[in-house]
């Protein structure tokens, strides 16, 4: 069924989640432990109705397994320099092979995230190691965000964003 409403992500938030910020992904396997993995890049469809996060298949094996079984996913994006944090949830997540250009996207993401973290006292070597992922290990998770929550620390954390502002 087509969703006629405007997408949950506005331009500003779509730009935010594709920036050099921290990305973490969670999924649950029915009856299993919640799974958690760091993503290594993100892209948003031109109509902003689909978000794709890039992951290392080995490091994110549990999350990938959970998504394959349930289709439910949570992705949190946070800018360590401002604490601005946004969480997206979706229930139609699919595990897909990377598209051409995804390896380059992951490399650009590493450089951008490093540029955010180095002024905060981290070394580039540590950031590069943390986000390292062989090109042939890349996988993606694509989902349609059905809910978005601001999680910038504070009493309003967890409140849903106003849809289609």
């Amino acid at each position: 069924m087509l969703d006629e409403r405007s997408p949950i992500l506005d331009d500003a938030n779509a730009g935010f989640i594709c920036g050099g910020i921290s990305i973490n992904t969670a999924a649950c396997r029915p009856g299993g432990f919640p799974a958690l993995a760091r993503a290594v890049g993100c892209r948003v469809a031109p109509d902003r109705r689909a978000v794709t996060v890039l992951l290392g298949g080995t490091a994110a094996a549990d999350v990938i397994e959970g998504v394959r079984r349930s289709g439910a996913v949570a992705v949190v994006f946070s800018d360590p320099s401002t604490n601005r944090t946004l969480q997206l949830k979706g229930y139609d997540a699919l595990v897909l092979p990377p598209e051409p250009g995804d390896a380059a996207l992951a490399a650009r993401y590493r450089a951008a995230f490093s540029a955010t973290l180095v002024p905060l006292g981290f070394t580039d070597a540590v950031v590069q190691a943390l986000l390292a992922c062989p090109d042939d290990d890349l996988l993606t998770i694509r989902f349609s965000p059905t809910a978005a929550f601001s999680q910038t620390p504070g009493p309003q954390a967890g409140e849903p964003l106003v849809r289609g502002a």
Partner: peptide, 22 residues
Amino acid sequence: GAVPGTISTCAPDGTPNIAYLS
């Protein structure tokens, strides 16, 4: 906390959630 930790949990309906830990 030099790198903030994250925690994932699961709601009864199977919806995952992530939070940053201070």
